[in-house]
Computed example of a mutant assay.
Amino acid sequence: MDGSWSEGVPAAVGGKRQQFGSRFLSDPARVFHHNAWDNVKWSEEQAAAAERKVQENSTQRVCQEKQVDYEINAHKYWNDFYKIHENGFFKDRHWLFTEFPELAPSQNQKDLLSENKRSEVPECRSEDGPGLTTEQHGCSSDSLGGHKTQLPPVEENVTQTLSHLEICADEFPGASATYRILEVGCGVGNTVFPILQTNNDPRLFVYCCDFSSTAVELVQTNSAYDPSRCFAFVHDLCDEEKSYPVPGNSLDVIILIFVLSAIVPDKMQKAINRLSKLLKPGGVMLLRDYGRYDMAQLRFKKGQCLSENFYVRGDGTRVYFFTQDELDTLFTTAGLEKVQNLVDRRLQVNRGKQLTMYRVWIQCKYRKPVLSNTS
């Protein structure tokens, strides 16, 4: 993927980062004056052409034998990806604080802390847990590197301690914290580390997991990794038997950034259902992912389609392209209430090469209802 295309980062104007949907192209002659334009309207011809392109690249499907391989060996393909790119492929997501203020210190966070009865964790129980998969993006990296520290191998350090573990209120990582964030599909930490660096609240604890043990090891060996404030672990979003290292109703925020699209569509609902159980009443699930007819979908060739709107890349990693309605159904079926569900059609600009490409992302925020009889 071309490393010059970003993952949908809002442009900064006068040093202040703008929210998505705030920069409009009113004069086509000025298209190369900025790196991106928001909410670009598609003509009927453009929309029809995109639909034809998807129909064309979907006519030839990957054979069943290969589809089984991509599912069974998904962890291998993601491990290989991170072994090749390490932390040199991704860019730190500081834009998340503009879009999702729940991640940064603010009055909103204080209000949510109070509303959620933050110090309470329900009865001793174990929660089934999905794991992590990260979505790759075409962007250059702000280095996350740092001096390596010696840690036990990821598989021994994390997997053994979580295997068949009954999680009780007073014996899980971050049990004393009053504000807890989980990122599913953390990759090499491009969301986690900006959160830890921006939010110094001692009451905060961040969990992060990924399907790739290589990615988790890169997080754990980063100089910014602080075990007193963060717990990184390997987890498969689709594994119905494996528990998360936290009790149900214990998280304030769950983050899914270009992650859900990497798993088999048939497994998405159960994965979201399990995550929903981890949220406190009033807690929120935040998502940003690929939308239908994004340029990445239009670029696929015949023979890369696994099922409708679901594809495999050349490196064996997979990606799905959503509609707003599909995501709304996933979240509401899991018992969550819509706060935000928007589509961002962006015109991405490579000013150096004088190229333009159309991106489509969907951004969602769904809240777990606050029930008066919830303890």
Rank of each mutant, 00 (worst) to 15 (best):
G335R: 00
T98S: 07
E135T: 14
F258Y: 09
L218V: 00
E240P: 12
L371K: 15
P202M: 15
V253L: 12
H235S: 09
Y311D: 02
L355S: 08
T134R: 11
S212A: 05
D236N: 10
T161F: 11
N39L: 10
G189I: 02
V192D: 03
K110I: 11
I263D: 02
K117I: 07
I263Q: 01
K110Q: 14
S58W: 12
Q297Y: 07
E217G: 09
M1Y: 15
N108L: 14
K53L: 12
P28F: 04
F172N: 02
D69Q: 15
V188P: 05
Y293V: 09
F258E: 04
K91G: 01
K267Q: 10
S141N: 01
A104T: 06
G282P: 00
K110N: 11
S375I: 15
H164I: 15
F100I: 00
L298N: 06
W95K: 01
P152D: 11
D142F: 01
N249C: 13
L330E: 05
P152E: 10
D328L: 04
T356Y: 06
P265M: 02
Y320I: 03
L327F: 03
Y82R: 01
Q269M: 03
Y70A: 12
I84E: 07
D2F: 09
Y207A: 13
G316S: 02
Q18W: 09
V206A: 07
S276F: 07
R292V: 12
W5E: 10
V54C: 08
I254N: 09
D239Y: 04
V184G: 06
F89Q: 01
T134E: 05
K91R: 09
Y244S: 14
C305L: 14
E241H: 12
D2T: 13
K76H: 13
D325W: 04
L275F: 11
P173D: 04
A74M: 12
D236S: 05
F331M: 03
C209P: 07
T161G: 08
G335I: 01
A271N: 07
R345A: 13
